[in-house]
Design a protein around this nucleic acid. Structure first.
Length: 478
RNA sequence: GUGAGUGUAGCGCAAUUGGUUAGAGCUUCGGAUUGUGGUUCCGGCGGUUGAGGGUUCAAGUCCCUUCACUCACCCCA
């Protein structure tokens, strides 16, 4: 027991009980992406370390302490991707997807890796759905990306979401703002928490993000980023806002929203869920106009995109009891009695599956009885016995045996008559007991008869003499 | 990296102030029963109580170490 090797910390197996839900989410995402004109791109899960250290930013937490980095046999420094955007950009540059003013709308999904302490909604190997629009500076691209992410959640049926946006300005604005913040916070050094003191030197914007209430108070009085935005950035932000309003989206502006990755410029946004734990961001994204240059491009390739945490989406959907479509379960269960019947059952199952039907047939050697027990969940059961095929439909259950039950009832009434006639001790109770006991059967008959009145005259049991007939019947009656 | 909580059958749980052979339920498998179809009954499988050490006549229970999980900080999706 204790010797079994376990999955590494922060990783997990998405088991059959869960995986069908994931499939639904990914399929839904694929549909939304198609409707928005985004094409799928599949990327390596590891890249040269430099891509992330330069793209994401040397001073970010991701690069400083969260990357899975190793040296391969060729002495190259390799890193398991901690996020998707840098890789998408790399692929676009390498394959000239944005050459000569062309633009690309790309989406992808897959595993990301970050070395962090796991907790609710956070894993070391986690999954993201990711969409990027490369080569467009126009704010309408920002709006489309935000629209896309909201539409994805709308289709998945998520409730209780909040869209939060901000502008972090371009490189120039940010430099100016950064200096202002540095000046401001330097004057309050003694009141800042330990980590904020470190942030002051490296990235004062992060202090705005601090959840420490003391730091929060000081941050409240900090200079406003909007006073540092130049005309272009301000106009861009206004246009994004106007676009969102045009589409009827509600959003909140949060001046403290600072994305943790250095490449963001201008638009930054997050979609938060109230039904997650402390890790309440279900998606996040924004614009990154100088990522391309950071990873070595000589031409400027602007971009906007977002990433959505799949693990968290599934978590929230479960929390909110959202639909994941249909649970995959067999439409037909083929039950076999003896060795000879098992052979027929096997062939019939094979033929039905050839025809694209989800069929189950026992392969473990279960008893006839247990096979039937298992079949009871299916819409149709085909029982193979003595070379004959008997098909029973779940919906019509019991229809074929009405007469048998009625006969039984008649016997019961005779019993009651006898009991009453004897007038022994407690005879009334005994008679009532018999009637009570049979009440279920009576309502069963009632249901069956009502079905018949509704026009359903099949008796629920179809007897067929050979395999081909059984196949034809089953194919036609799904 | 820091803090708190939890580890007992495949799953979710129980076991008196430390006291006999660690128990039922669900699942699974087999049998009986019926209207051969979600019923009911009987039975089988299933455990080094996360691991290691200590205290004790005696440890699932107390102490230490370690590992894992969970939640939170940090940060993010």
């Amino acid at each position: 027991m204790s010797e079994i090797i376990k999955a590494p910390r922060g990783t997990r197996d998405i088991l059959p009980a869960e995986s069908w839900k994931w499939e639904y989410v990914i399929n839904t995402a694929a549909e939304v992406m198609k409707d928005f004109g985004f094409a799928q791109i599949m990327l390596p899960m590891f890249e040269h370390t430099e891509l992330f250290s330069r793209g994401v930013g040397e001073t970010t937490d991701i690069v400083e302490k969260e990357m899975y980095t190793f040296t391969d046999r060729g002495d190259r420094s390799i890193t398991l991707r901690p996020e998707a955007t840098a890789g998408v950009m790399r692929a676009a540059l390498e394959n000239n997807l944005c050459a000569q003013g062309a633009f690309a709308k790309l989406w992808s999904w897959g595993a990301m890796f970050r070395y962090e302490r796991p907790q609710k909604g956070r894993y070391r190997q986690f999954y993201q759905i990711d969409a990027e629009c490369l080569g467009i500076e126009n704010p309408e691209a920002d709006v489309e990306i935000i629209d896309l992410s909201i539409e994805l959640f709308r289709r998945l049926g998520l409730k209780n979401l909040e869209v939060v946006i901000n502008s972090v300005g371009c490189e120039n604005c940010r430099k100016i703002y950064r200096d202002k913040l540095y000046e401001y916070f330097s004057a309050h050094k003694s009141e800042l928490c330990e980590s904020c003191l470190a942030r002051l030197e490296r990235n004062p914007l992060r202090i705005l993000d601090c959840k420490n209430p003391e730091c929060g108070k000081i941050a409240d009085g900090a200079p406003d980023i909007y006073d540092s935005l130049d005309d272009d950035c301000r106009e861009h932000f206004e246009k994004v806002r106007a676009g969102l309003e045009r589409l009827g989206f509600k959003y909140r502006i949060d001046k403290r929203l600072v994305r943790g990755l250095d490449y963001y410029t201008k638009t930054a946004y997050e979609i938060l869920s109230g039904d997650l734990g402390a890790q309440n961001a279900v998606a996040g994204g924004g614009r990154y106009d100088n990522l391309a240059n950071a990873v070595g491009s000589s031409v400027k390739i602007p971009g906007v995109g977002f990433a959505c945490g799949l693990d968290r989406v599934v978590l929230v959907m479960e929390e909110q009891a959202c639909s994941f479509g249909k649970i995959p379960e067999p439409e037909i269960y083929v039950v076999a009695d003896d060795e000879e019947s098992r052979k027929h059952a096997q062939i019939l199952t094979h033929k039905l599956r050839n025809a694209g039907v989800h069929v189950e047939c026992d392969i473990s050697g279960r008893s006839f009885k247990n096979q039937i027990r298992n079949a009871s969940g299916c819409k149709l059961a085909c029982i193979v016995k003595d070379g004959k095929f008997e098909i029973r439909s779940k919906d019509d259950s019991g229809v074929g045996i009405v007469s048998k039950i009625l006969e039984r009832e008649r016997e019961k009434f005779v019993d009651i008559k006898n009991v009453l006639a004897q007038k022994s001790t407690g005879f009334v109770d005994k008679a009532l007991e018999i009637l009570e006991h049979e009440r279920d059967h009576v309502t069963n008959i009632k249901n069956v008869l009502e079905k018949k009145r509704a026009g359903d005259y099949s008796d629920g049991i179809v007897k067929l003499d050979n395999l081909d007939e059984a196949f034809d019947y089953l194919s036609a009656n799904l």
